[in-house]
Design a protein around this nucleic acid. Structure first.
Lengths: 221, 221, 221, 221
DNA sequence: CATGAATGAGTTTTCATTCAT
DNA sequence: AATGAATGAAAACTCATTCAT
């Protein structure tokens, strides 16, 4: 229990990292589950092998911990986005693939989706102060921008919506599925995350985007 | 305001209703703004012409007030949905019109959208207990079901998605625009509620749904 | 519901009396059950066909109601004591009979016994201020004093304890049985008010007093 | 009081124990004096060298503190009962001695007697949940059972009442003297705890029990 | 680094009482 | 005499944070 004072320096740092990491891990779960105001510092600490004191030592307090949780959550998603490799595919296929990857990412990181909802309740005031904020937009958008450009050049994509519009369409679908899962099920009795409905919804978001991008003008002027 | 000293019984009741209504009004704003845990009973009362005590008198406590707020919010939306009158239009136009009405409704009731997000943070535990819950699904779905049916019969709509799928698509788009407004703007620098972008997005959700419903199979098997 | 203003005066008084009586009745139950501090004015009123306002109208407040409850409770017991008729019996029989009547009285008025416990928690501060207090001692003691006197004159009763000692012995037994019923049963598993044990205990208190009064000195000097 | 800056671990724990102990001490007095509902958490804390917060830290709340008070009070009485040493005396003398010890115990622990009254007002709901409850009965009863047995074998004690009957007789007398002290004095003008009356009452309870146990049948069938 | 104890300001809730009609 | 609405003071309870070792 007591840290041996004769412990080599490297191991103590390892311990420190492990403590930090454990706190972030647990705090992510608790904040995602209870919201910022609803989360309890005592609760987070209790679910940890360390003590409450460490939260103040490493993060300065509840808010610092929350900000660190947000930062980690976004940096992970960004890392995933950077791994996306669809540029070798033809435009429509690439777009569909991108939508499906986004769908999968969100399904695999439901805590992240909840944290985003929570952060929006707080007007994104913490996210806005993140030093890593400026780097968050590019990965997702750059790929999309290039695919759209290719599609337009090839004459298969319409050009009255930009990458951010497309990103919004895909995100709204994938995030809604999780963020509004509970009220949706309460009202309509359909669990949007039921395994049996997964493939249908995954294909739907791809169809939706591709059908629109490739449609020959649907609007009646 | 001026209390007539010869006030008949009916007006006394009116007073009680007014107190209740004022509390609900203010509480809706505060809960929508701060979330359930973040809202302060003292704060709500202070923004009122009555006292904190009345919250307990009429609603039993903070949670009771929150539940009443949820109930009122949903009942208002349901009332709006019931007024929708698109059945005389041809299917594609009707769907587009429905999407636009939903878009408008959500824009006009941003508190409601925030309350939905907040309620999802709480796993819809309060909504689920609402006695009016069973009546919430029908209004939105019935119209949609009939339009889709007409469209399919006319051979203009595909039939591999149901009314609830379409409802989800429209809702996710309209709700995302508000619920995720702050993180979206923080990261991408685009305000989804900027007046200048309104028409574009409004048309986009209509196009999206209609293009997909009328597309001749986009998926490459 | 609404009291007819054309109602003859006598009936309104009757109503007033009935309201007062109902309040006292209910308040006796609630105070006896919950204690003074534990009783709720709202609760008492709710268990009544009148309203809380009447408590203030008739009794001035919670404390006034409690005092009225105490007064009524003691006056009823005094009335019962005054009906005791044992003076024609021979001393030992009379004492036994008196003990048994006390036993019966307390069993029949358990609310009274609880009110006495509650009043003692409050150092009898309310009882002490009762205008009827001076008349409370006599009825119980006078009879007892005369019986003891007769017994001593006849040479069958010892004379080293007075009427108040005997009264205390009898009361302590009968009151303990009810006042300490719950802790006694929790610890020892015996319900002192179980019907099957009633006769045994009733005889026991008689025996106890008579055996002592007629014993030929038990104490070893 | 003076906190040694080089204080070893053991003393830190001692501090916690002292805080707990002080809270229990004070709470015992306040609950015994005011009853459960009448006691104020603020009041208890104010009479302490710690703060109200510590009541919640150590006992979880008002009720937890009250339960802890009850537990401590009963455990102390049990400890006293276990020290009783009368088995070497002849039966009648042993019983008298036991009655007198009980008399003394209760006089020395008037807070306990009041807590018992208070707990009975609450139907012993807290006592019943005490994990130590099962061990509470034995100490008092075992000694008594053995004395009675010896007395019966020696042919000096009657056998139509058991140890629990005897315990009840003794307890009722000793507890009444304190629990009903205030109403008794208010009505009859006699202070049952006046020092001058102490020896008389102490002898009386001994006589009462011994006279009955050794009487040759008093009841006239 | 680690830990249990402690704290103070704040938050929710309760309750006897009074008001207006 | 009666009633629902309203009130303010006080009570219980919570929580992020800091202290002492």
């Amino acid at each position: 229990m007591a840290t041996d004072s004769a412990m080599p320096r490297g191991d103590r740092i390892r311990d420190a990292d492990r403590t930090r990491a454990e706190l972030l891990e647990v705090a992510t779960r608790v904040f995602a589950d209870q919201g910022y105001a609803g989360a309890r510092v005592d609760d987070i600490a209790a679910k940890t092998s360390t003590t409450k004191r460490m939260i103040y030592y490493y993060f300065g307090g509840k808010e610092g911990l929350y900000v660190a949780v947000m930062e980690r959550a976004y940096s992970r998603i960004r890392a995933l986005e950077q791994e996306v490799d669809v540029e070798h595919l033809e435009p429509a296929v690439a777009i569909r693939r991108l939508a499906e990857l986004t769908f999968d990412h969100h399904e695999a990181h439901q805590d992240f989706v909840r944290l985003v909802s929570i952060e929006n309740i707080h007007h994104a005031e913490h996210l806005r102060r993140l030093p890593t904020l400026p780097g968050l937009a590019a990965p997702a958008l750059d790929v999309l921008t290039r695919i759209l450009e290719r599609g337009r050049q090839a004459g298969v994509f319409r050009d009255d919506l930009d990458a951010l519009d497309v990103h919004m369409i895909i995100s709204s679908f994938c995030i809604f599925r999780e963020a509004n899962r509970y009220t949706f099920e309460a009202i309509f009795g359909r669990d949007l995350l039921a395994p049996g409905r997964r493939d249908h919804l995954r294909r739907l978001i791809g169809d939706l985007v591709v059908d629109h991008l490739t449609a020959r003008s649907s609007a009646v002027p």
